[in-house]
Amino acid sequence: MGEVIVITSGKGGVGKTTTTANLGTALSQLGYKVVVVDADIGLRNLDVVMGLENRIVYDLVDIVEGVCRLNQGLIKDKRYDGLYLLPAAQTKDKNAINPKQMLKLTSELKEMFDYVLVDCPAGIEQGFKNAIAGADRAIVITTPEISAVRDADRIIGILEASDLANPLLVINRIRVDMVKRGDMMDIDDIIDILAIDLLGVVPDDESIVISTNKGEPAAADKNSLAGQAYRNIARRIKGEEVPFVDMDTSESFMTKLKKVFGLAK
């Protein structure tokens, strides 16, 4: 029996979809059977980030409405073994499904996959409620900006009120140079304010833009720093203890990262 993990943030544009695609890819490369579910009905995007937009026939709403079987709606990613996408509907809106239907869908997916990653829409309305309905765990994404952290705080409060206690935090797009000169909140600042456990830190990295352009998640790119960060997060999700500084990365980045974590001066 698998686990349903919802990836949420409150604020839009902080990297929920990118994170979902990359964690799905990284988990599948660790040998797990993974499905990434786009719950952003009406604003479908996970398909393009994954590079699978040309292969969509059916979508999530079709499955819920019984237009097709669950198996027919799942798109197999041929590049990564065990990775599947369940795309959102593009022509319907968020009210096309309800939390009860979502719960039924995710519990069926749980029987088939090790991990079900749900990409949550921005906001706290119907779409959000649908996305968290079947979740066993939640990952909250934020960036080191005041607006994103504020929304993350709100989301954490709502998650805890919805029996999704102890969500884990991913801080995205951190810029080491700005943190160093005191112009960006650092990891400790954010954890101090949000008071939840840290799952990972993803550096602001051009390779994310490039990989999204190509439709190839950065987690599959051995040379991408952000990709490495996502691979580390994937290993932490499966329960491994991974230090926050990785030895595989380049020396200069290592030193920079160490400074961020206060390990070097």
């Binding site: 900006e145 005041i146 952290v149 504020r150 705080d153 909140m185 600042d189 304010i193």
Partner: peptide, 14 residues
């Protein structure tokens, strides 16, 4: 540093 300003503002708004 501007991050201190951000932190203070954030804490108050929260």
């Amino acid at each position: 540093p501007s991050k201190n300003v951000a932190k203070e503002r954030l804490k108050l708004v929260l």
